[in-house]
Simulated assay, not measured.
Amino acid sequence: MQDSFVYQMLPARVVFGHGTSATLPAEAERLGLRRLLVLSTPEQVALAQRIQQLLGDRAPSTFNTATMHTPVEVTKRALEVVEAERIDGVVAVGGGSTIGLGKAIALRTDLPQIVLPTTYAGSEMTPILGETDDGRKTTQRSPKIQPEVVIYDVDLTLSLPLMMSALSAFNALAHAVEALYAPDSNPIVAMMAEEGVRAIVDALPKVLKEPDDPRARATLLYGAWLCACCLGVTTMGLHHKLCHTLGGMFDLPHAQTHAIVLPYALAYNAPMVPEAMSRLCRAMRSDDAIGALLRLERDCRIPLALRDIGMPREGIARAVKQALSNPYGNPRPVESVALAELLEHAWAGTGI
C-alpha cells in the first residue's frame, strides 16, 4: 500500500435505489430550488415530461435538444431559456449528452444541478466537462461543474437497450482502468476501481441474458457509480485523451469509441503497470485482463474497429497530431509512431 497519498472527496449527494426518482421534489426543496429547467435529448422527451410533471410548478420549462459531445452552440441556446425563464437550477435526465449540457450551463451560471442518469457512463460523478467547438473537443475541471445531487434510480435503466447498456458499461470500465494507473491514484481509488470492474463484469452477462432483472441492473449501476467516482478524482491518460480527440474530430459516438479504444490503450500501457494489471485480472477472474475484455466485448456484439463506427483511415495522422498537441500524464511515453500504430490497429480491429 502507498504510505503517502492525497484523496480529494467530491461534494456530491447520492441517492441510490429502486424508485428513487420520487425523491426528486424533496431534493429540489432541500436545495431551495423553485424554477428548474429539465434537460434531455430529443429521444428522451417523454421521460423529461414525466420528470417535469413530478416536479409540478417547480419545473416551468424543458430543453430537449441536448447533443453528443456538448456542442457550444447548443449550450448557448439552452442559456437563452435559462435567462428567459429565470431558472435557478437544472435537472439533467439521461446519459452523457444531457449531463454534459447541465454541466456546461452550471459552469457559466453556477446554477445547482440534479442528475438522474439513465446510462452507466458516469459523467454525473465528475467535475469534468468536455465541450466541442468547431470540430475540436476540449475538457476542463471546475468545482462549478460537479453536480450537487445524483439520483440513481435503477428503474430508469431497465429499458436501456442491450447494446447501449453494454457500450455504456464499457465506458464505465474505462474510467476504472485508467484510474488504476493514474499518476494521482491512491489506495482508496484502487479499491473502488477494482470493485467497480468486478461488479460490472459480473453483472453485464446477466443483464444480457435477462435485461429486466432488477438485481443485475442494480449491480451494474453500482459498479458504474464506483468507476465514475474514480474518474472524478484522478487524472486520465492516453485512453481518454484518444477518445476525446476522436470524438471531437470525427463526431464518433462516445460510448462506442471508448469500448473500441479501451483494450488497445490498455495493451499499450500494460508493460508499465503490473500492479494495475494484477488488480484487473483479479477483478475479472482471469489471468489475461485484455483477453477477458475482448471476449466480453464479443459476447456483447460490440463493434471492435473504429472503421465500423465511421472513422476515416486518412484521419489517423490528424488524430495523432492533435492527441500529441497537449501533454498529459500516461505511464508509458506517448510517441507519434507508436500512437499511429495503436490507431491503425484500432481502426482495423486487429493487432491484439
Score class of each variant (00 low, 15 high):
residue 1 M to D: 14
residue 5 F to H: 05
residue 9 M to Q: 14
residue 11 P to M: 10
residue 16 F to M: 12
residue 16 F to T: 05
residue 17 G to Y: 10
residue 18 H to N: 12
residue 18 H to P: 05
residue 21 S to R: 15
residue 21 S to K: 14
residue 26 A to Y: 06
residue 32 G to K: 07
residue 33 L to A: 05
residue 35 R to N: 06
residue 44 Q to H: 14
residue 48 A to M: 04
residue 50 R to T: 07
residue 50 R to A: 04
residue 52 Q to K: 14
residue 52 Q to N: 07
residue 54 L to V: 00
residue 65 T to Q: 15
residue 67 T to F: 08
residue 69 H to I: 07
residue 71 P to T: 10
residue 72 V to N: 09
residue 80 E to A: 15
residue 85 E to C: 11
residue 85 E to M: 13
residue 86 R to G: 13
residue 89 G to N: 07
residue 90 V to L: 03
residue 91 V to H: 01
residue 98 T to E: 05
residue 99 I to Y: 10
residue 99 I to Q: 11
residue 101 L to Y: 06
residue 102 G to H: 05
residue 104 A to Q: 04
residue 107 L to R: 12
residue 108 R to C: 05
residue 111 L to R: 10
residue 117 P to G: 05
residue 119 T to C: 12
residue 120 Y to M: 06
residue 122 G to P: 09
residue 123 S to T: 13
residue 126 T to K: 03
residue 128 I to A: 08
residue 128 I to S: 04
residue 135 G to I: 08
residue 135 G to Q: 10
residue 137 K to Q: 07
residue 144 K to D: 10
residue 151 I to T: 03
residue 151 I to F: 05
residue 151 I to K: 02
residue 151 I to N: 01
residue 152 Y to W: 11
residue 157 T to W: 03
residue 158 L to H: 05
residue 161 P to R: 02
residue 166 A to D: 02
residue 167 L to F: 06
residue 170 F to I: 10
residue 174 A to Y: 00
residue 176 A to L: 04
residue 184 D to H: 08
residue 188 I to A: 12
residue 188 I to L: 15
residue 210 E to M: 10
residue 217 R to F: 08
residue 218 A to P: 01
residue 219 T to A: 15
residue 221 L to A: 13
residue 222 Y to W: 14
residue 223 G to S: 06
residue 225 W to P: 03
residue 231 L to E: 06
residue 235 T to S: 14
residue 237 G to R: 07
residue 239 H to V: 08
residue 245 T to V: 15
residue 247 G to W: 03
residue 248 G to W: 01
residue 249 M to W: 03
residue 251 D to Y: 08
residue 253 P to V: 03
residue 255 A to T: 03
residue 258 H to K: 11
residue 265 A to D: 02
residue 266 L to T: 10
residue 266 L to V: 11
residue 269 N to K: 12
residue 271 P to M: 11
residue 273 V to K: 00
residue 273 V to C: 00
residue 274 P to L: 11
residue 278 S to W: 09
residue 278 S to V: 08
residue 279 R to D: 03
residue 284 M to N: 01
residue 284 M to I: 09
residue 287 D to P: 05
residue 292 A to N: 06
residue 294 L to V: 15
residue 295 R to H: 13
residue 296 L to F: 05
residue 305 A to D: 00
residue 306 L to H: 01
residue 307 R to G: 07
residue 310 G to K: 02
residue 310 G to M: 11
residue 311 M to C: 08
residue 312 P to H: 03
residue 314 E to C: 11
residue 316 I to R: 00
residue 319 A to W: 01
residue 319 A to L: 02
residue 320 V to F: 07
residue 323 A to H: 09
residue 323 A to Q: 04
residue 325 S to H: 08
residue 333 P to A: 11
residue 334 V to D: 03
residue 334 V to Y: 01
residue 336 S to Q: 12
residue 337 V to G: 08
residue 340 A to Q: 14
residue 342 L to V: 04
residue 349 G to C: 11
residue 350 T to F: 04
